[in-house]
Each structure stands twice: as C-alpha cells, then as structure tokens.
C-alpha cells in the first residue's frame, strides 16, 4: 500500500469515527430456544452508512442474532430474550412498540430468495399496501423507484405483470431487496443473501450493497470471507453463540486479536 492511500484512509477513519452514528445498539443479549442458549452476552453496535458483516461457522447463532433486530424471533414459539436493542436510542423490544413498525424501519432479505407467488409489481407494492398506502400513482412511482434502486428495473420493466417466480434466482433476490426498499427502511438486514446465487448475481448484489450503504445501515450475514472483506466496514465473528471479536473489517482480517478468529479466517482459506 502506498503512502497516499494510507493517508486517505487515515483521514477517512478519522472522519468516520467522529460522525459515526450508532444506528442499532444491541446490549447484553442472551437468547434461548426453549432451554437451549443460542446467544450469550452479546454487545454490538451497527453504524449508519456502514456495512457490518457477521461471520462464523454454521449454527453459531448469526441468523438468530440479526432476526432479533426486526423482532422476527417472535414468530418462533417458546423463546426467551433478555437484554436491550436500541434503534436510534429507542428500545425496540418494549411491549408497547409495534413490531410491524420496527419491521418497516428495519428491512430483511433472506437466505433463499422468497418472492411471493404474485407478479413482480404486486411483490413490491405489497409492503406499501399492508402499510395502508392506497394512492395508485404513489405506489407505482415507489415500485419503479425501488426496482431502479435494486438494479432490476432494466431487466423487468417490460414484464412487471409476469409472475415473480419466473425470474432467475439472482433477479428474485434483487426483487426481494426492492420489496424491502419500497417501504423505505432505515436499516437493511441481509441473511446470507448470496447463498443460492451464482458468482455474477453475487457480484451484482455486492455492488448493490455498496451502493445502498450510502443511504442505509446494513448488516450482512455471510459464510464467504472474501465477501465480508469486500463489502463490509465492520465485522463480528460469532462462535457457539458468543461474539468473539468485533472490529473494523481490516483488523479482523489482517490482525485479529483473538486466536479463534484467526483460526477461523485462515482455516477457511487453507
């Protein structure tokens, strides 16, 4: 690395650390499926306009963790959660907070593309309709805007009324992202968004994430170390329900403090 980029980076770091806004703050999180503990004493901050990657071996609780942010864990019966999660300083786990409201503000894209068995247009307008928006022109405008943002517009503009299930896997995933964007969230959660996609679609999604970062706080769960290194600013390493290390992505990949992190990262690539 030459000195120029180093200086640039230094300055960037400096600027960031001053204006970094904590978007989501997870505090002392413990989570149980029945009696089995899935998350142990987790503290983690998600920053605005940054991509936070969550890595770790299968079954370590990554999905469980990010599903707390939009209260999806409430769909699973028999679970216990202690600790606090704040969105812009507001406790989102409170009994008087409407989970639907939280889910509008924190969008989620799942591992497997899961468009509704409806047409492309309806898939995206759905989120607006369930939130009580009736104005047709407004909906149409928002659908187009979301498709453009999700870099899907050019591919589907002539067949908005075709079934979404006829799209390719990568297109479906971008459709799911557009569906998310349509309700104007503030945070985007991606749970292994590229797990079922080919390299080209994966690259498109990654470019998209970097683009979306300008407007959103982003959390991405991934098994792909290179992906984490490519797209994220911060990385958290989970192991058996514990957050082993959380730091700037560079530090995690270049100079991890914890031996376990290093083992995991290097083990992956031999």
């Amino acid at each position: 690395m030459d000195s120029k980029t180093l200086i640039m980076e230094d300055r960037q770091n400096c600027v960031c650390s001053q204006s970094d806004l904590v978007k989501i703050k997870a505090q002392d999180i413990n989570f149980f499926y029945g009696k089995q503990q899935a998350l142990k004493d987790i503290n983690l901050d998600v920053l605005s306009n940054k991509v936070t990657a969550i890595i770790g071996p299968s079954g370590c609780g990554k999905s469980t963790f990010i599903r707390l942010f939009n209260r999806m864990h409430e769909l699973v019966p028999n679970t216990t959660l202690t600790g606090r999660i704040y969105l812009d300083g507001q406790d989102i786990l409170g009994a008087c907070v409407d989970p639907a409201e939280i889910r509008r503000r924190i969008g989620m894209v799942f591992q497997k593309p899961n468009p509704f068995p409806k047409n492309i247009f309806e898939n995206i307008s759905y989120g607006l309709e369930v939130n009580g928006i009736k104005n047709k022109e407004f909906i149409e405008g928002r659908v187009i805007e979301s498709l453009k943002k999700a870099a899907l517009w050019d591919e589907v503009k002539d067949r908005l009324h075709d079934s979404a299930l006829n799209l390719s896997g990568g297109q479906q995933q971008r459709l799911c992202i557009a569906r998310c964007l349509a309700v104007k969230p503030e945070v985007l959660l991606f749970d292994e968004p590229c797990a079922s996609l080919d390299p080209i679609s994966t690259r498109k999604i990654e470019e998209l994430i970097l683009e979306l970062k300008k407007d959103y706080a982003i959390v991405i769960v991934t098994h792909n170390m290179q992906q984490a290194a490519r797209v994220s600013d911060y990385t958290g390493f989970f192991l058996l329900g514990e957050l082993i290390e959380f730091d700037k992505t560079e530090k995690i990949f270049k100079a991890p403090k914890n031996q376990k992190t290093e083992d995991y990262i290097t083990g992956r690539f031999g």
Partner: peptide
Amino acid sequence: PKSFREASFAVGANRWQTLVKV
C-alpha cells in the same frame, strides 16, 4: 412455505394481512 410468511411479516404486515393476502 414458511418463507412467504416471513417475507410478509418482514415488510411490516400483520397476521391478518399475511393470512388474507399471502
């Protein structure tokens, strides 16, 4: 599929909307 319901809840739909529309 469970994923349809999840997708619906994730954009802020309630149970009734999820049931009737998805």
